[in-house]
């Protein structure tokens, strides 16, 4: 497996507010990653620091094997990025903007551009400034996909899209994911956006990636455990991040189930229940 992105000790602060704190993160080629974080957690800051659009204060980032401060033009051509805020030239029509952008790339997939324009019903004669927010975002997505990049980074890509648009965009990510070796990162605070398409989930919390794992593993390891027992007060659940207990039962959310512990308790005649949690609940627990 090749590493697409390697981040080491990345820090960034705005005035007195520390946003990223010696953040380490490594992303393998072929991963489709949902980057989750609360509002203000620093998702956009992290993404723009990865791409060196808004440089970090310290630390290093390598993208497709090159330092992000000295990327070669060949490597730049392999990256696609959709910012959260539409900062494209507003006085060009969609058609003109696409032709303009096309000149910067050696490779441009005209048929994909055509297909997405007709599927998303974009009027290419309209100026960028005349488009709705959702339509504008679709154009940015098309521009980011047009040169068939190997690494794609989307900052809240579905934020301005309606439910049908979100679904369609996610479908496009699914199609891209089907072509192996494409690495995709998209940030969101909406867990349902990533449940169908991401194979990994990263949680940004307090300046660090506090959790990064296969989505399936996260769902299988972060679960609710409850023990029903008349000695509930004396029972401690291992790996629990959050517990509450009374005289008859103890409930907790664990990051990992200790099966030996469970078996031992059951052998002593206590009842141990394990309930899976939705990603949304998991996210809330891990960032509580």
């Amino acid at each position: 497996m090749t590493t697409s992105i390697n981040i080491s000790k990345l820090s960034k602060s705005y005035k007195k507010q520390q946003v990223l704190t010696e953040l380490d993160w490594s992303i393998q080629q072929g991963d489709v990653i949902g980057l989750l974080g609360k509002n203000g957690a620093g998702k956009s800051t992290l993404i723009s620091a990865i791409l060196n659009i808004n440089p970090a204060d310290s630390g290093s980032v390598s993208l497709l094997g090159e330092d992000n401060k000295t990327l070669s033009s060949q490597t730049k051509a392999k990256i696609g990025y959709v910012p959260q805020i539409n900062d494209e030239i507003t006085w060009l029509t969609v058609k003109e903007l696409i032709l303009f952008k096309k000149q910067f790339y050696c490779h441009w997939n005209d048929s994909k551009v055509e297909e997405l324009i007709s599927r998303w019903e974009i009027d290419t004669h309209k100026k960028m400034s005349e488009l709705s927010v959702g339509q504008g975002q679709r154009v940015l997505i098309i521009l980011a996909l047009a040169h068939d990049p190997d690494l794609m980074i989307f900052d809240e890509p579905a934020a301005a899209l309606d439910p049908a648009g979100r679904r369609d965009f996610l479908k496009e990510i699914v199609n891209l994911a089907a072509e192996e070796n494409k690495t995709i990162i998209f940030s969101t605070h909406i867990t349902s956006d990533l449940e169908r398409v991401a194979n990994k989930v990263a949680i940004l919390h307090q300046g660090k990636i506090c959790h990064f794992d296969d989505l399936d593993n996260v769902k299988e390891s972060v679960v609710k455990v409850s023990v029903i027992s008349d000695q509930a007060n004396n029972i401690t659940i291992p790996h629990a991040i959050n517990t509450n207990q009374n005289s008859q039962r103890v409930n907790g959310v664990v990051t990992q189930v200790d099966l030996q512990w469970k078996k031992a308790l059951e052998n002593q005649g206590h009842q141990v229940d394990i309930t899976p949690m939705s990603l949304e609940d998991i996210f809330l627990e891990l960032t509580a």
């Binding site: 489709v32 479908k171 699914v174 994911a177 089907a178 169908r196 398409v197 991401a198 194979n199 399936d216």
Partner: peptide
């Protein structure tokens, strides 16, 4: 794998698994 992934809008890796 591709057909199923497309039909239910999920990551193909999930179906492969």
């Amino acid at each position: 794998v591709r057909q199923v992934a497309n039909a239910i809008d999920v990551n193909p890796m999930t179906i492969s698994k």
